[in-house]
Each structure stands twice: as C-alpha cells, then as structure tokens.
C-alpha cells in the first residue's frame, strides 16, 4: 500500500464518520427514519470495508477482501432488518 492510499483512506474515513454523525444530529430521523437508518448502516459498512482493505491491507488479497465484504454486508443487512422490523410490522 502506498502512502498516498493511506492518506486517502484516512480522509475518506473522516468524511464518512462526520457524515454519519451529522446525520444523527439532523432532523431527518423524524421525516424518514428508514432512509436515515439505511444510510447510517451503509456508511458503517463502507467504513469497515476501508479499514479492512487499506489499514489491514486486504486490498493486496482481492479474494479474501471479497469474502470479508460479503460477510460484513450480511451482518449489516441483518442489523438493518432488525432495525426496520418494528417499523414495517
């Protein structure tokens, strides 16, 4: 991994974290809690993916990275399903 890729990963993680915190402080939850919940978990999945691929250097092992991407996506989808359950039932 190059130094530039590391700086880019850090900047992306900061931007995504500020985005999810700003979202939590906004009024969007009162208007569209489902969209806000999907956005927050999507941002979490994206951040986890960057940590795995850049900080933990899984980008050098694409097959493993795909496996971790799928497992993390499954976890986030399960979390989303449980979050949405009371709102759709």
């Amino acid at each position: 991994m190059t130094r530039r890729a590391l700086y880019t990963a850090w900047a992306a993680l900061i931007a995504l974290s500020l985005g999810s915190t700003a979202l939590s402080l906004s009024a969007v939850w009162a208007v569209g809690p489902i969209v806000a919940g999907v956005a927050v978990l999507l941002l979490a999945w994206w951040k986890a993916r960057i940590i795995l691929s850049q900080y933990l250097e899984l980008a050098t092992a694409p097959e493993w990275q795909r496996g971790f991407d799928v497992a993390l996506a499954a976890l986030c989808l399960l979390l989303l399903g449980l979050y949405l359950m009371p709102q759709v039932l």
Binding site: S20, S24, G37, L41, A44, A48, I51, Y55
Partner: peptide, 22 residues
C-alpha cells in the same frame, strides 16, 4: 497494529448501532 485496526473496525460497527440508529 492489526489488533489496533480490529479495535477500530469494531468501533465503526458499534458506534452507529448504539449511538446513531434512532
């Protein structure tokens, strides 16, 4: 550092679920 990144990884999953999902 791998241990430290694991701590980071867990936090980015824990933070939104505990603090943000409303």
């Amino acid at each position: 550092t791998m241990f430290w990144h694991m701590v980071d990884l867990v936090w980015v999953l824990l933070f939104p679920v505990i603090y943000l999902l409303q």
